[in-house]
Simulated assay, not measured.
Amino acid sequence: MENMNIIDLFLSASLLVQLIMILLLFCSIASWAVIIQRSVILSKAKKQINYFDNKFWSAEDLNTLFNELQQRKTGIQGTEHIFYSGFKEFSRLHQINPNMPTAALDGASRAMHLSMNREIDNLDRYISLLGTVGSTSPYVGLFGTVWGIMNAFIALGAVKQATLQMVAPGIAEALIATAIGLFAAIPAVIAYNRLTLKVGRIEQSYLNFIDELLAILQRQAIAIRK
């Protein structure tokens, strides 16, 4: 017993407990892959917001900015995509009926919100996996522990004289399942909360940009009518 390590405990565990440990390790690896990938993507999205925000407010003419984006529209994303879809829809509707700026503004608002929802869906992808892993892994590990301890006591009941040395290995290998479950769950829960908060902040930035752009388009529409 003194020389046993985690690998020995895993190899000596029952098949079901081994499968549970492997499942939990796979969930942990998948969680860390999502954590790293989403962290990089959200960081890039935040930088893109700051970059386009500076470019937007320093632009002398929105038509020039729109034309620039139109030339490379396959690569636009984030606030660039929201601006492009909103300004395009506003220009189209305003050309159809210049005397109804409200309809053009409503159409631009709908187009921008649809684009924003697509952007948020892309940013939020796979984050729900972290919530699932964080909420279920401890219980899966606990199930493995209960199963392992049950088998240990069943084996203990088959002998006439029970000692601590006989039951300790079985209990130890069972408790490893709970430890692995917590190892998978704790980082997943922390990352889920942090990444969800970041997505929420980015979404609020998108909403603020939509409101600002609609206000500018409204002033332009009023100026054109005059």
Rank of each mutant, 00 (worst) to 15 (best):
Arg110Leu: 13
Ile127Val: 14
Leu23Gly: 13
Asn151Gln: 15
Ile176Trp: 09
Glu212Gln: 11
Gln218Met: 06
Ala223Met: 10
Gly134Tyr: 07
Leu217Gly: 02
Ala111Thr: 07
Gly181Thr: 06
Ala103Glu: 13
Gly78Arg: 04
Lys73Ile: 09
Ile36Gln: 03
Ala179Ile: 13
Gln77His: 15
Lys88Leu: 08
Ala172His: 10
Ile224Thr: 10
Gln218Ser: 11
Val133Met: 04
Phe52His: 03
Ala155Ile: 00
Ala184Asp: 06
Thr196Ala: 03
Arg125Leu: 07
Glu60Val: 06
Gln220Asp: 12
Gly157Ser: 13
Ala162Thr: 12
Ala155Trp: 00
Ser14Phe: 02
Val189Arg: 03
Ile127Asp: 01
Ala179Lys: 05
Ile222Pro: 01
Gln95Thr: 09
Gly181Ile: 00
Ala185Ile: 05
Leu197Val: 09
Ile222Gly: 01
Ile180Gln: 06
Ile22Phe: 12
Met112Asn: 03
Thr79Val: 13
Ala45Pro: 00
Phe52Pro: 00
Gln95His: 12
Met1Ser: 15
Ile186Pro: 06
Ile224Trp: 09
Gly86His: 08
Phe143Gly: 00
Asp8Lys: 09
Ser39Thr: 15
Gln161Ser: 09
Gln204Tyr: 10
Ala13Ser: 15
His113Cys: 06
Met21Leu: 14
Val17Glu: 08
Thr178Tyr: 04
Ile82Gly: 03
Phe66Leu: 15
Val140Met: 00
Asp61Pro: 06
Val199Glu: 00
Ile176Met: 13
Met150Phe: 14
Leu15Lys: 11
Phe10Asn: 06
Ala215Gly: 05
Glu68Ala: 08
Trp57Asp: 04
Leu156Pro: 04
Ile171Pro: 11
Val199Arg: 01
Glu212Ser: 11
Asn117Thr: 13
Pro101Arg: 07
Ala162Leu: 08
Leu93Cys: 10
Glu2Ser: 15
Ala30Asn: 11
Asn3Glu: 12
Val146Ile: 15
Ile154His: 11
Trp147Leu: 10
Lys73Gly: 02
Leu142Ala: 02
Phe26Ile: 13
Ile154Arg: 08
Trp147Lys: 09
Glu119Gln: 14
Ile120Val: 12
Leu23Val: 05
Ala111Lys: 01
Gly181Phe: 04
Glu60Gly: 15
Pro169Val: 08
Asn63Ile: 11
